[in-house]
Structure formats: C-alpha cells, structure tokens
Design a protein around this nucleic acid. Structure first.
Lengths: 229, 229
DNA sequence: AGACGTTGGTGTCCTCAAAACACTAAGGCA
DNA sequence: TGCCTTAGTGTTTTGAGGACACCAACGTCT
C-alpha cells in the first residue's frame, strides 16, 4: 500500500459511451463485467485514469484495450461523482462519448476474452453502476449535437448514399424528414462531395455515393458558416 | 498520513466561473491567492472535493465559503485534467460556471479576509494554473447557451427594462441587435410578465419593468417550445 | 416657461428559408 | 415483360427574420 496522502482522495475513472449505426438502428457498445460488483452485468467500457495520463488519453486507451477500437470521434460528455455511485470506494467518472463507423468495427468487437457486444439503444439490458444515467445523458447530447454540428458522418462509412444519411438522422432525432427538403438542404451546404461511384449489389436502382468533405467544412466554418440540421 | 491506497489517486477539485453583469459589461469573480503556487495571482474560486460530497455540492460550498455567494444558477462546465496543470500533485478539476445577479452581490464580494473582486471579462489579469483556459471555455459556453436557453435573466435583477435585457445580449454575443426586432421577438415568446412598475429616478422617460415568468417558461417547454436568441 | 437631451416605445415591408407535396427513372427479379 | 423497390427531381405556400424612422415621455438646463 505505497500511496499515501494527507487527505482522502477519490479514485478517478473514465467511461465511454460508444455509438455506432447500422442501417437499422443506433447502437451502443457494452462490456459484460467479470467481477463484482455488478458481476456479469453489462457496463460501459472504462477504467482508471493513470496518474500521469491525460483524461482523453485514458479514455482512448481504455477503449482500445477493452474493445479494440482505435480511430474514433471522441468528446468529453460530463463528469459523474455522486458519493456512492461505486460501492467500493469514492469514484469520480469522467464520461466521454464516441462515434464510430460500425462497418469497420462490427465483428471483432470482442478483442480480448471479454464479452463485448453492440446493443440497440432502443433495447438495452440493465446496466452496472449509474451507467444508465450516463448513457441517457450521452443520448440526449448526441440528439442535440447532431442538429448543429456535422457529426453524423462519423457514424457512416466513408462513402454513403443520401438515403442512408437521412435514415441516420431520422433514427437519431426520432422523427421523419421530407426526402426532397432533406436532400435540397444538405446538398446546398456544399459539405458533400460526389464520389463518382454508385451502390453495388442492390436489388433496385443504385444510388450515388457521397463523402463528407472535411476540407470544405473547415473552410466554411472559418467563413462563419453554421451547420444546422 | 492516514490515507493510503493500492494505486495512486489524483486529487479532485472544483472550480467556479462566476459571471455577473452590470449595465456596462460582463464580469467574472476572481480570488487572489494567498499561497504558493501562483502566490498573489488571481484565480477562480474553488477547492478540494470532500470525500463524501457530491460534485455540485462541493462547488456550491466552495463558492459560498470563498465569496459568500449563495443562491445562483450553477451548471457543470467541463473537467480539466492535464497531468501537470498543478505543480504540486496530479489534480483533476471539475469546472462549473455560475450566473448571479450582480446587484445582489456587488459590494461584499470579499467575505472573509481574502481579496475577492469582479473583473470585466474584456480586461482580465493573468490567472493561476490553467484558469485562463477554463474561463475561455466558460465564456464560449455562455455565449452559445444564452442563444438557445433563457439563462440571461439569471444575470439581471428580478425586474428590469427591456433595454437592459437587450444590452445584456449585445454584450455577451458581442454584436448589436435591432431594438424593434428584439422587443417584438422576446415579447412574442410570452416569457416576460409586465410588472406594473416603471423605472424610478432616471433622467429620461421611465421604462416599464418586466420580470422573467418562470412558470410560463416551464409550461411552454413542456409543450415543445424552444427558446431561441 | 421653454428648449434640449436622452431613452422609451411602436409597425410595415421585403426577403428568404422551411414545409408541404407527387411523379418519373433505374434496375433487379420473378 | 411486368413488378417491386428505391433514387432522384421543382414548385408553391407560409412564416419568420431583418431592415428601417419617427413620435412620446420626462428630467434638466438656462
């Protein structure tokens, strides 16, 4: 027990709410706990912050260790610190939320022996600790954020048809959008670049594929442009 | 040194960015440090989180202890945890921002012997630790938040003329607003109740005084209303 | 008493973006 | 060849935001 302090110190962890999307619904990555407390309950991936490690670094490291996911959009969400949220000791958790392209990470979600799985947000198991609350906050943040910043693209493959983008939006904000108005608006922003490709192997007319034009977005943002819906 | 752990634990603090407004500019409450490090530098009020105390509770307690301010709008801002942000040991700071009615707290800002003062955000001294960064994040948040949630009223006296509300908005978002359009819009929301009073002791035509109608706001919010600008 | 200075308070028109709305095109499949 | 499914396309209507200028009230100064 080599670490002593003059005053009691809480433990600090990071937890990650990792969102993914597959043509049907919005999903979250969960890990089944192997140890007490909450043994065999599902929980958000996360762990302790090393003493010499930045918070975001810790979040990335834990996500990589536990789920194998490496490149992702990551942003701090909120810090949860209710005194008894962990029965063992006082633990303060800095929560992050992340968006990944599910297509890249679909299968091998289980990286080490652990039980890792994607769950549709509409149909979740009961979670360990206060993780349901954390997830709830993350979901509200995502719903709000997607309307005024172009983060939805982080959830899609690099090339995607407009209809998929629209379905993504409809899924997340939970309301239908008019097809023509959606296309008109999103295209008029000039953030989408038309790859000269079309869908393959579909049983109907193939759609054009677009990609998000990061460079154009940066340019527009500097010029005072504000993404909206 | 009675507190020992198996692994190293960081210290956890809360810091508060307290905003006030007085008919000319937006101000922030700062404390002059009495001890090293950064002795005699100005800093955000804050302090250590007790081991059995919620984060928001800690923020309120510290603000009351150090500045005497008691009723305020308080909201978690962001958590800062760069490994060397405090030279003594690893310290993770959960920052909050607060809005107060400066009229209520103008004078006795110095509660105990400490040196406490309001500074215009446009003219700040150099600050201790990473507090300039924290303040910067807080300011950006306030600017964004005031446009889509009716928090501006927290900075004004209970009864205020419309012109003062408009000046507040112009100060915070740093651009002028058209008087007629502003009045039209804000009044049409139905969030302001006309007290039947007017300004006293002014050297010109006296303005009607309004107050923010919290009950009406709650009602509208439930009905799906969204405040904007 | 009268002129002046300062802030309060009011309405219209124009412009543009959001919302509603329905049909043809393409291509695989039975 | 007909059918099913999804892609792709414009116009009209409606409402909100933005530009814009004058009179009213009231204290102050001479």
């Amino acid at each position: 027990m080599p670490y002593t302090y003059q005053y009691p110190h809480p433990a600090v962890t990071v937890d990650g709410v990792v969102f993914g999307y597959d043509e049907a619904d919005l999903k979250v990555l969960l890990i089944q706990r192997e140890q007490a407390p909450y043994k065999s309950r599902w929980a958000l991936p996360g762990g302790f912050v090393e003493i010499d490690e930045g918070l975001e670094d810790a979040a990335r490291r834990e996500l990589e260790e536990e789920t194998g996911i490496t490149r992702l959009y990551l942003e701090q969400l909120y810090t949860f610190g209710a005194p008894r949220r962990d029965p063992r000791e006082r633990v303060i958790s800095v929560a992050y939320y992340a968006l990944v392209k599910l297509t890249d990470h679909a299968v091998h979600a289980a990286s080490d022996a652990r039980n890792v799985a994607w769950f549709p947000v509409a149909d979740l198991p009961s979670l360990a600790f206060d993780h349901e609350e954390i997830l709830d906050v993350a979901l509200r943040r995502l719903k709000a954020k997607i309307r005024y910043e172009p983060v939805g693209f982080e959830l899609l493959p690099e090339k995607f048809p407009l209809s998929e983008l629209q379905r993504l939006y409809e899924t997340i904000i939970e309301q239908p959008l008019d097809k023509r108005n959606f296309r008109k608006k999103i295209l008029s922003m000039g953030l989408l670049a038309d790859t000269d490709e079309i869908q393959q192997d579909v049983a109907h007319r193939a759609a054009r594929l677009y990609r998000f034009d990061q460079a154009a977005y940066q340019r527009l943002k500097k010029a005072g442009f504000n993404f909206e819906l």
